[in-house]
């Protein structure tokens, strides 16, 4: 007969948190940052079709690190939530705050009740008409939610990237400058003492933006736009010439 050992709730939660953290740490980082022109989302992702960044609604985007199958199902659920809400109420009644709060509930429920927590970390970003109205929510595997300003970095080596980005980012940058700052910072994920990695190009990057004013820029109310490889290389090419 197998003996059921007593495990304290503290130990149980700690084990689960360690398990989730370990899973998340394996992936490359994702940066979400606000700037003058809108919100830029930069992910290190070698796959051109398995996205880490996605469109949720008119002014809301999604970014994630961790296990693909888990965050992909959360992304699809988020799109359903937003579309149902926008269809039954109105388009302007879909907010990042509402979405982040249902994500937090779902992640929290899985963390405590399921046999294994989600090994994901999510960001829900909503672009406003001014920088002050931008919202970036960070959601972790245990269902905690944080309303961040400026920028967030998610993934295993997030702290090192945050350190690198602090000196490179400011709110007055345009998309080109902000994306260059984020891509440059991703190279320093080995920490400030380690040698930075070689330049990153469009092959290993996935970049998207939320335009602050998509209606005048593109005649669309949907702010989310993926930056195509060619445009991205041109953006980063300037950077290389300057270095």
């Amino acid at each position: 007969m197998t003996q059921q050992f007593y495990v304290s709730p503290e130990q149980l939660m700690k084990d689960r948190a360690d398990f989730a953290r370990k899973g998340i740490a394996r992936g490359r980082s994702v940066v979400v940052l606000t700037c003058r022109e809108g919100i830029a989302l930069v992910a290190e992702n070698p796959s051109p079709s398995l996205h880490k960044l996605g469109e949720i609604y008119d002014r809301i985007a999604f970014a994630a690190v961790g296990k693909y199958n888990e965050f992909e199902s959360l992304r699809q659920a988020g799109v359903r939530y937003a579309d149902v809400r926008g269809y039954s109420y109105d388009r302007e009644d879909v907010t990042a705050r509402g979405l982040a709060s249902v994500y937090a509930q779902s992640l929290g429920a899985v963390f405590t009740a399921e046999s294994k927590p989600f090994e994901v970390e999510l960001a829900v970003a909503e672009v406003g008409t001014t920088i002050a109205q931008d919202h970036i929510y960070r959601l972790t595997f245990d269902g905690s939610i944080a309303d961040e300003t400026g920028f967030i970095v998610m993934g295993g080596q997030a702290d090192a990237v945050v350190e690198a980005l602090k000196g490179r980012w400011n709110a007055e940058q345009d998309f080109g400058e902000a994306i260059r700052a984020a891509v440059d910072s991703l190279r320093y994920d080995g920490g400030s003492t380690a040698e930075p990695r070689a330049h990153l190009g469009s092959r290993t990057l996935e970049v998207a933006v939320l335009d602050r004013d998509p209606l005048t820029a593109r005649g669309s109310i949907r702010a989310f736009r993926r930056v195509p490889a060619q445009e991205l290389d041109a953006m980063l090419g300037n950077d290389r010439a300057a270095v």
Partner: peptide
């Protein structure tokens, strides 16, 4: 019309 517009946008977002 409204349902059809959401239908197309929904597909586009889910499928990429």
């Amino acid at each position: 019309t409204r349902l059809f517009q959401v239908e197309l946008e929904h597909y586009e977002k889910i499928e990429g």
